[in-house]
């Protein structure tokens, strides 16, 4: 894949997954729209991407921080009731069940879980997006998985 030279290329290549990610984390169309816009505007203002080939993790990190900032500002837990808007059905799992299971995860685990299990990122990318070690990313996802499975039993 060639290096990204323009805002337009970054946008066209990644906007759908970032919008979907924002929708999964916020479960609200307007909030997701804001996160998507703030993420890309921040990326444009902070141009160029820190390292070639890592634009994706960079965008996920910005988006994750925007979601956490918003949740902090709003002093409320992010609602996941509307997850079915964004999540494709997987393995016959009821999305409503999955949504309520994900809802109760702590923020760091929730972001790791969504990035790995719903967005399909590699652990290395999850780690870069959440600014933690790959080991920490694995353990957050594993912890989250355990809780989600328990909740859905």
């Amino acid at each position: 894949m060639t290096a990204i030279a323009t805002f337009g290329e970054l946008l066209e290549r990644h906007e759908r997954e970032i919008f979907a990610y924002a929708l999964r984390l916020t479960a609200d169309r307007d909030d997701a729209d804001d996160v998507y816009q703030e993420t890309f505007l921040a990326a444009f203002r902070g141009w160029p991407p820190p390292r070639r080939g890592q634009e994706r993790a960079w965008l996920y990190r910005i988006a994750t921080n925007k979601v956490i900032d918003r949740a902090r500002r709003a002093k409320r837990l992010v609602r996941m009731d509307d997850l079915r808007l964004a999540a494709p059905e997987r393995d016959g799992v009821s999305l409503a069940d999955l949504a309520s299971a994900v809802k109760v995860l702590p923020e760091g685990q929730r972001a790791a879980f969504v990035l790995r299990k719903l967005q399909g990122l590699e652990y290395a990318e999850v780690a870069r997006a959440l600014a933690c070690s790959e080991e920490a990313a694995r353990s957050r996802v594993a912890e989250a998985m355990k809780k989600v499975k328990e909740a859905m039993r």
Binding site: F7, R16, Q37, L41
Partner: peptide, 27 residues
Amino acid sequence: MNELMTDARERLVARARREGLETVGYG
């Protein structure tokens, strides 16, 4: 999702234009 995306992108580009971040537009 497609429609959501199109609307969101239009608003994003309009903001980028207002902020002077867009120098060249294409279609």
